[in-house]
Design a protein around this nucleic acid. Structure first.
Lengths: 334, 334
DNA sequence: CTGAAAGCGCTTACAG
DNA sequence: CTGAAAGCGCTTACAG
């Protein structure tokens, strides 16, 4: 590694002070024409780049957003990451990502070591003391936890689950099985509540199979379903993964989807529309979620740095989820 | 935001110098027992955390790895990110990610602003001047570019393509279609070369449909395939996405896989084994790729910082790719 | 419009 | 074992 050139080197070459070099780079209009030219020439000649670490320290900011998610390899998150990154990049911010299930101390450190000035949190299962201890602009995205002292953003999971029930009911299904997610997860609980309310409201005969969002849980649910006396003709899974597992296992057992059973998923992950049959599911606009969260946290960061006095407007209205009607659902057989 | 506590505050409270606080935190064994206790007590009382930005500036390092990929939302990358992040986190390093297709200037800046001290590059299509201009420990993962002055890591794409041909040939297929990737991509070109060599070697009747890795290209290839006079009985796609598109389109057109045509993909993405039929494909061990790349770049970073004199060993041996035999391939119909 | 100087919050030779 | 002081590489009042 060749030694990097510092602002001092540029200043000497241009025959000006470091202050002038700094000004030329950050607010050229405050520098005289001729001086500016000299400096720019010297910058080009040396290939100088501002040392971000030094700039950040001096300005007491990090120009960086930290994204925390419970499982980075989860395909549901990647589009959200991409959207946040894009939004951040546009305003010159850097993006850090970390698995949120690292040790408590490391986690605390991430939000307290001064190398991030805003957080997008995709995990509602962390210790509230840790989250509140960060004391940084933070937004909860998708998952949430009422013990976190921070605004949240996401779809209305209760209403979305109702959408699923409504769709199945509209197709004539009178017995519906819900394959739920883990009960310690807010999303799972809220979707289940929405399902139960929707079923009750419409006089649907409901049952719930306790799952955990995974493919395997879906397959297990399908085996359970096949043994039921009065098999539900409709199934609402708390995640797409789970729905795909359910459908795959049905195929193995010789049942047809949607001929024998209609299946709805949740999320609309990348492969939902490529699966055979393509999956009817609840679409979560992940790009919009990521962009909005990024914008929101950036506004909070600006406010925290006093760049504008007014706090970011509270976006109470949730992101809109929609049902995507594909091939895995059909009219109920009588 | 409450004002953060600085090392000075801790020092005053403990009645020692900042140097002693610093030592207590970084090398406690060099500090006297009683002093250490006082300091630790003061640290606890104040909730002090080292300011990473200041530490980094002083030590001229960033404790951060930068990951660059051409498309963050691509499901192929997420497991790699997760693996790198895990490995990095274990040694106290932070991970930044960025889309590599941002503007040239921003890109240059990312590697030159002193906020990363190592790079994992998953894009072989960048301007070599930019890449070589970073002057940071860097490893090329998966994709590569001979113009980049950096070690590379990945599978042997040529050999992997041969594996696919071998598999189809072994099932009796004598006419094979290759749906290639974009010709400006090294992976696509290398896989195609491997395919052609493998076909030639075995006296296979080959043809190539120019694709671009996408689902749509696969669907298009399927339509083309259906119009061929002597339809190939085997198809090798340069990516899983593409293979899924091919299979889906076959289903729409009323062809069966593998009854009418056997299809092999490439990558073994998450959904390859959940698709119906499950996809025979070339498995790329993404977790291993990520971990190995991380270890490698960390070793290079250490060497660059002079922590150990010997340079990192050159891992010429590539990561091993294997063929996963699933349900989308079968014996050739006569 | 420009420069000298202070300071962001740490770490680390150096001296004792 | 401990402290005073310098310095990492910038930016920014302050003064002129």
């Amino acid at each position: 590694m060749v030694p990097r050139v510092r602002i001092k080197d540029v200043a000497m070459l241009a025959g000006v002070s470091t202050a002038t070099v700094s000004r030329t780079l950050s607010s050229p209009e405050t520098v005289g024409q001729k001086t500016r030219e000299k400096v720019i020439k010297a910058v080009k000649a040396t290939g100088y780049r501002i040392n971000g670490a030094a700039r950040d320290l001096r300005q007491r900011r990090a120009r960086s957003i930290l994204i925390l998610a419970p499982n980075l390899s989860n395909t549901f998150f990647s589009q959200i990451f991409a959207a946040i990154q894009e939004e951040a990049s546009e305003v010159g911010l850097t993006v850090q990502i970390s698995d949120s299930r690292i040790g408590r101390d490391r986690l605390l450190s991430l939000g307290q070591d001064g190398r991030a000035d805003g957080i997008v949190l995709l995990d509602g299962g962390l210790d509230p003391d840790v989250v509140n201890g960060w004391n940084l602009p933070l937004i909860q995205l998708s998952e949430w936890n009422i013990a976190y002292d921070a605004p949240r953003l996401g779809i209305d999971n209760h209403a979305a689950a109702d959408l699923a029930v409504e769709h199945l009911a509209g197709l004539g299904h009178r017995r519906i099985l819900h394959v739920s997610g883990p009960q310690e997860n807010v999303l799972a609980v809220t979707r289940q509540e929405g399902f139960l309310a929707g079923a009750k409201k419409r006089g649907i005969d409901q049952s719930v199979f306790p799952g955990d969002f995974t493919l395997e849980a879906g397959a297990e649910a399908a085996r359970f379903w096949s043994t039921m006396q009065h098999r539900p003709t409709g199934v609402f899974c708390a995640s797409d993964e789970c729905a795909l597992g359910f459908i795959s296992e049905c195929a193995h057992m010789g049942f047809e989807v949607p001929g024998d059973v209609s299946v709805i998923g949740f999320d609309d992950i990348d492969f939902a529309d490529r699966f055979l049959p393509s999956l009817t599911t609840i679409h979560q606009p992940r790009n919009e979620m990521g962009r909005t969260a990024a914008k929101r946290v950036i506004a909070m960061m600006r406010a925290a740095q006093g760049e504008d006095a007014e706090p970011a407007p509270d976006l109470k209205d949730s992101i809109k989820a929609t049902l995507v009607d594909r091939a895995s659902t059909g009219r109920a057989a009588l």
